[in-house]
Write a protein that binds this DNA or RNA. Structure first.
Length: 708
DNA sequence: GTTAGGG
DNA sequence: CCCTAAC
């Protein structure tokens, strides 16, 4: 029985004191903590059943290039990475669709079918094609007969960040069947409404930018925030065009713009008579700063951070992105296929409650897209940010480096042959939730022992192995790797395995239909939070060691950081399923250490005066920044930081200011001169628009000052 | 502590 | 991203 084999192996792995890998625990004792047990599990002697001595070779491109993690010098390359062995196990399960692998191989190789891949659609410049509309990838499931029910589920899930979301409009309301005009994958706005008494977070809107992509038609300079929606303490969603929304109790929520279309001052008070109803004219997600001065703008925007346990009031409600950029998700529609090699595969989008296979084309190259030079920055687009904080569970031989995009024909030929096999390396896994009770006088050794025992107990309870693609569970065990689009090594970066205790699986399926309106927030929040957590690790470890905490709780909250996996994985959150626990592999840590360790080193490094690790802004972050600046203007970086990036502690307001500077520069130069992660032209247009606007405002202000 | 700007 | 001047 394959599962038994896995269990046996995992138990041995955990029990074995010198397994050469990392068993990582996220400990949220005071808030979060991490125990790294690498040394405990290091050994040459460790063997899995069936291990023949072969070692899956780590990918060069990711080795030793992470500036965050330095491999231990005394770590012999001959050491067996037991996690890779685990990869073998998991791989075997993959190979056996019914999870009935009889044997456990050390280097599982999958024989696949044709391994040609098409060029991946690019989000480089210009308007994104409809193929990249993330909505199209999921809209069908919202067209099901259960849509209403899903909507209800969705609404219930909208208790985000302390928001009581009674009224939610799915993004799919804006994603019509023929919504090929939808161009931009991100610009969904979540609007928080407030009543005149103050903030009233009883409505959460998802605003389509379907029409708002094109620059707002304007003659002359226009307020980038146009149409601004002002009302007394009312946050407004404009550009709705959705009956379901309009039918909702707007609670005094109106879409507003000045009647003559002129920009409205940020805090101008507009009488209701001047307000128009919800309109459909192209506009950016309209967020209104409440006139009530007690209402901070932070209450208007969707927070990009996760609510702190001890702080649930400072989040800025900002646009709501449906998902982190996920190129492959945008490839459902092959209206404009860009093909290098014509091969169609099936890419399964895994909806919450149904299994559908959509025909799509995937590829391994990005048009006009240069990968970053550094490996630690060359993660797949959709995973980059998350990965940077080690929150993604990824499996894959290597991130694509610049080499990967400029392969010679020889290399390509070679890779064609290599593509016959799918190598899965799992280099680390996590025990997300464990609870430990320790006396204050407990030693570190006893702590280790306790953690070990807890882990053993966890593993002893039985495990499920689930395969995640882009963070979504793959339910169809009968799909082939080729069909899933995960056979190619360049696609494996979206693949992840999660080992979870028995019982979780069924729980995960509960009430999980429909679009989770909180998903985007949670995703982004989680990843922001995860980034933030890194700065807490040491302090919390210290706190626990100082005896100030008697209880350490190892949570599995990190699971929600999986891309698109929130719908599923968030259900594993301890608060909801306290008994749930899961092991999740994040083999991106090919160096053998979890990325969290990276953050610790980075953390300490930041205090040693070393240069911080470069952490490129993701498109989602850029969009957040752009929208924040649109609303707040330039020169208010502290506010931007506090309100939008409050939980992204690695983003200082100086960083935000610098990023804006570079964005403006980027927007001004020719596309071919731009480097790094391509920023959608739509965003760059908004950057220039906002920049110009606020510069004019500044000039006006100075002019007025000089006159006076 | 923030902001702006050069590097 | 870093550094620093200016506020």
């Amino acid at each position: 029985m394959g599962m038994d084999s896995v269990l046996t192996i995992l138990r041995q792995f955990v029990k074995h004191p010198k397994a050469s890998s990392t068993l990582e625990f996220s400990i949220y004792g005071i808030s979060s903590c991490l125990i790294q047990m690498e040394e405990t599990f290091r050994s040459k002697k460790f063997h899995f059943p069936g291990y023949d001595g072969a070692l899956p070779k780590a990918v060069r491109t990711s080795r030793g290039q992470s500036s965050c993690y330095k491999k231990s010098k005394n770590e012999s390359p001959t050491y067996l990475n037991s996690i890779e062995l685990l990869a073998t196990v998991a791989g075997q399960f993959l190979h056996d669709k019914s999870l009935r692998a009889e044997n456990v191989g050390i280097e599982e190789v999958f024989t696949t079918q044709t391994m040609n891949f098409n060029k991946k659609a690019s989000i480089s410049h210009g308007s994104l094609s409809s193929t990249e509309c993330p909505f199209t990838a999921q809209k069908s499931k919202y067209q099901s007969l259960q849509e209403q029910k899903k909507q209800e589920n969705m609404k219930r899930k909208c208790a985000i960040e302390g928001i009581s979301c009674k009224d939610v409009v799915s993004r799919n309301d804006f994603c019509q069947e023929d919504s090929k005009d939808v161009q931009f994958p991100v610009p969904i706005g979540a609007m928080l409404t407030c009543n005149r008494e103050g903030i009233s977070t009883d409505k959460l809107f998802f605003i389509s930018k379907e029409d708002g992509l094109t620059p707002t038609p304007t003659s002359g300079m226009q307020d980038p925030r146009t149409p601004l929606c002002h009302n007394s303490g009312v946050l407004e969603a404009s550009n709705i065009g959705c009956d379901s929304l309009k039918n909702k109790d707007m609670g005094g929520c109106r879409s507003m713009t000045s009647q003559d279309g002129t920009p409205l001052p940020l805090n101008s008070r507009v009488s209701e008579e001047t307000l128009t109803s919800v309109h459909k004219q192209p506009c950016t997600p309209c967020i209104v700063k409440p006139v009530d001065r007690h209402l901070e703008l932070s209450q208007n925007l969707v927070s990009l951070g996760t609510k702190d346990d001890d702080d649930n009031s400072s989040d800025l409600f900002f646009f709501q992105s449906t998902e982190p950029p996920e190129p492959s998700m945008h490839l459902i529609d092959n209206a404009h296929p860009i093909q290098l090699q014509q091969t169609e595969v099936y890419c399964q989008e895994v909806p919450a409650t149904e299994t559908r296979i959509k025909r799509t084309e995937v590829g391994d190259q990005l048009k006009g897209k240069k990968r970053k030079r550094h490996v630690d920055q060359s993660m797949p687009d959709e995973l980059q940010c998350l990965d940077s904080v080690g929150k993604y569970a990824q499996v894959g031989p290597a991130p694509v480096t610049s080499k990967g995009l400029h392969r010679s024909m020889k290399q390509k030929t070679k890779e064609k042959n290599d593509n016959l096999h799918v190598k899965v390396n799992i280099t680390s896994f996590r025990v997300p939730e464990l609870s430990l009770n320790l006396p204050e006088t407990a030693t570190v050794a006893s702590l280790k022992k306790a953690v070990m025992e807890a882990a053993v107990n966890l593993l002893g309870g039985g495990l499920h192995v689930c395969v995640l693609q882009h963070g979504k569970r793959i339910y169809d065990d009968n799909s082939t790797l080729v069909q899933m689009g995960i056979a190619h090594k360049d696609r494996l970066d979206s693949l992840a395995f999660m080992l979870e205790p028995s019982g979780v699986l069924s729980t995960n399926n509960v009430g999980d239909s429909g679009f989770d309106c909180s998903k985007g927030i949670e995703q982004y929040s989680a990843w922001m939070e995860s980034a933030s957590n890194m700065t807490d690790v040491d302090a919390e470890m210290d706190a626990s060691n100082n005896g100030t905490s008697k209880e350490l709780q190892i949570k599995n909250g990190d699971l929600i950081n999986n891309v698109d996996g929130c719908e599923k994985l968030r259900l594993c959150e301890p608060s909801e399923i306290p008994q749930a626990a899961a092991l999740i592999v994040h083999p991106q840590a090919e160096h053998g250490l979890p990325v969290e360790i990276v953050t610790r080193e980075q953390h300490s490094g930041s205090f040693s005066g070393k240069r911080r690790t470069r952490r490129p802004f993701t498109v989602l972050e850029v969009e957040a920044l752009v929208q924040a600046v649109e609303m707040l203007g330039t020169g208010r970086w502290r506010e931007v930081k506090e309100q939008v990036f409050s939980h992204a502690r690695h983003r200082t307001y100086v960083d935000l200011k610098d990023k804006w500077k570079t964005l403006v520069h980027t927007a001004r130069i020719a596309p071919h001169q731009r480097r790094g992660e391509p920023v959608p032209q739509e965003l760059l247009d908004r950057v220039l628009q906002a920049h110009t606007y606020w510069m004019m405002q500044l000039a006006k202000q100075q002019e007025d000052t000089s006159i006076c």
